[in-house]
Amino acid sequence: MGRMTDQPARWTQATVYPDMWVDPDDDPRNSEGRAPDGELATLADFLANYRMTLRMKCEGLDAEQLARRSAPPSTMSLLGLVRHLAEAERDWRRWISDGDPLPKLYGARDADFDGAVAEPGEIEAAYEALAREQAATDAALAAHPDLGERLGRDGIAVRELLVHRIEEYARHCGHADLLRERIDGRVGQ
């Protein structure tokens, strides 16, 4: 007799490759065909794909599922990741500015995760904040197309900031894979 568990069975909507999130023909990310030309275009493409991956990991879930914590003592949730990345986007603008940092969106340390509650208004606000902060950081960096240009008080290179943004999204997309699988068994890609 099999062991009883409250863990969901692994599943996928892919039919061609059942270990993937979606079949390649249904994947909205630019993962097939020729990669963009040039370093800046390549970095922008990777960032866009990781941003889209995060949204895909959150699709089709209700407020309770988005706010569900991973496992104690962690406060990590998919909604917390959305809020955290909005906060990170805002903070990255501080790195390229000589001015004072913008105020935190969600408050003190870990408030982005701690305040991720299962309320539809909170979820809508988190997605709006993420889109707004991404657009603002993208616009600030668009004024600096030279990847070697050094910006801000610390003289960070534009390239370093772009690579760090990609790394941050990629790392958190890995967390999102595990969070989503724990919620409903949907596997990552």
Rank of each mutant, 00 (worst) to 15 (best):
M1A: 15
R3V: 14
T5L: 05
D6K: 06
A9S: 08
W11H: 15
Q13I: 13
A14D: 02
V16A: 12
P18K: 09
P18N: 05
P18Q: 11
P18F: 00
D19G: 04
M20T: 11
M20Q: 14
V22M: 09
V22H: 03
D25E: 10
P28G: 03
A35I: 03
P36E: 07
D37F: 05
E39G: 09
E39H: 08
D45L: 06
F46Q: 14
F46Y: 09
L47Q: 12
L47F: 14
A48E: 07
R55D: 09
M56T: 00
K57Q: 10
E59K: 02
G60V: 01
Q65E: 11
L66T: 07
A71F: 03
P72N: 05
M76E: 04
S77Q: 06
L79M: 04
V82W: 03
V82M: 10
R83G: 06
H84S: 03
A88R: 00
R90L: 13
D98E: 11
G99M: 07
G99H: 10
P101A: 13
L102A: 15
L102D: 10
P103D: 03
L105G: 10
L105T: 07
D110G: 02
A111F: 09
D112Q: 12
F113A: 06
A116F: 03
A118R: 08
P120F: 05
I123C: 07
Y127G: 11
L130H: 12
A131P: 02
Q134Y: 13
T137P: 00
D138Y: 05
A139Q: 11
A140T: 10
A143S: 12
L147G: 15
E149C: 00
E149Q: 15
L151M: 14
A157F: 00
L161P: 06
L162S: 00
L162I: 00
H164F: 05
E167L: 12
Y169G: 00
Y169E: 05
Y169K: 01
A170D: 02
H172V: 09
C173K: 01
G185W: 06
R186F: 12
R186Y: 09
V187C: 03
G188H: 02
